[in-house]
Write a protein that binds this DNA or RNA. Structure first.
Lengths: 133, 133
DNA sequence: CTTTACGTTGACGTCAACGTCAAGGACCAC
DNA sequence: GTGGTCCTTGACGTTGACGTCAACGTAAAG
């Protein structure tokens, strides 16, 4: 059963399909649900994934590639869905955004430094190689 | 005993000093030694850290901030110290460099995407805020 | 000489992020 | 019916990266 496309015309996916598509195991998908990172619909007892779930999963996996702990990832993507009706809420969200940005920019500096070192190292290696030529 | 600066005039450090300076615990420093990331000298039974160890520790911590597993970090920084006398060795090292660069550039893409999203989200939040007067 | 500070080596504990069964329900094909 | 495929919920195992003792050595300070 490759997941029904029943009432609102919107396509949905089974757990096996999303796992396959994103290159993770169904256990991983379930784990993310346990942590509140995903909240698929249920058709009876079976999980039904919508576009929204795929979007969130993509965000989770990107955060994972960047080395963030899942708990932290949750607070971030929850931020995107947070209510922003009142001024105080908006100001809180904006403060969080600043924190996140500072973190990401530190990582960017680390990343650029690592890449620069790698470049320098490659140059030296190529010079060594040329000398052996 | 803030570590002796005995024969070659080069300053050295105790485990407490390097831990302090890099903002980690001595347990962490020992753990890194167990994994072969650091190889301090011994004066009797006591560890003595040289500039080289500090350099490596800095690399390790940067790798850690970037979310790399310690084992992977070890293979990378060992690469920097690897023998490159023979052509085959150099070619191996250059291949490894390419692998590493590909990984780092994927991370950079993820990072840029995350920052871009954050920027867009902040703009929307600021617009919401403006609408609230 | 005893205390205090810092060092050492095990060895077990913990937490995150899953892996890996086990046992069973639901539905289709034959 | 039986089998096969995909789904479910536990629940225990594992790995990485340390934390946290315990038990002990050593060397300067009182």
């Amino acid at each position: 059963m490759p997941a029904p496309s029943a009432p609102p015309g919107e396509r949905t996916w089974s757990i096996a399909e999303v796992a396959e598509e994103f290159g993770v195991t169904h256990r991983t998908v379930r784990h993310y649900e346990e942590l509140g990172l995903l909240t698929p619909q249920r058709r009876g007892t079976t999980r039904v994934y919508h576009r929204r779930d795929r979007t969130r999963l993509a965000l989770v996996l990107r955060g994972r590639r960047l080395g963030f702990p899942l708990e932290e990832i949750r607070t971030i993507i929850d931020l995107y869905d947070a209510p922003r009706g009142r001024r105080s809420q908006l100001e809180y969200v904006l403060a969080q955004i600043d924190d996140r940005r500072a973190d990401l920019e530190q990582r960017r500096r680390d990343l650029e430094a690592a890449l620069a070192e790698l470049d320098g190292f490659e140059r030296r290696c190529r010079e060594d190689l040329a000398r052996l030529g």
